[in-house]
């Protein structure tokens, strides 16, 4: 990885942080809990990195680590989206 890629990455990081600040500030307190489970589900995107490492079938050690990582991330993705939806379904108007 050369410095150009690092700088591009840092730009992306910074812009996403500002965007996140803007978006999250507008979320009403009512939805703070589903917000947390939602961001949790979304950050389960680390699954894609784990998938590649597990799929490369490099060695027993890397497979074991990759396997656990894929399981953990999948729990977050599936569980996160499902529980967010379960919570949001409960909010109703009076």
């Amino acid at each position: 990885m050369d410095t150009t890629l690092l700088i591009i990455g840092l730009y992306i990081f910074m812009l996403a942080a500002f965007l996140g600040y803007q978006l999250i500030s507008k979320v009403p307190a009512l939805l703070h809990t589903p917000l947390m489970s939602a961001t949790n589900a979304i950050s389960g995107i680390s699954l894609v990195g784990s998938l590649v490492i597990l799929g490369e079938n490099h060695s027993a050690v890397s497979n074991t680590l990759g396997f656990i990582a894929v399981v953990c991330s999948t729990i977050n993705v599936v569980g996160g989206f499902l529980i967010t939806d379960r919570i949001l379904k409960m909010f109703r108007k009076g």
């Binding site: 990455g9 703070h32 949790n40 979304i42 995107i45 990195g49």
Partner: peptide
């Protein structure tokens, strides 16, 4: 997650990690 995105050079992970980081911090 963002650090992992940097390490694997995976932009989408940088984005979600950053969003998640900002969200937790604001809360």
């Amino acid at each position: 997650d963002a650090a992992m995105g940097f390490m694997l050079d995976n932009r989408i992970q940088i984005i979600t990690g950053s969003l998640d980081g900002a969200s937790g911090f604001i809360l």
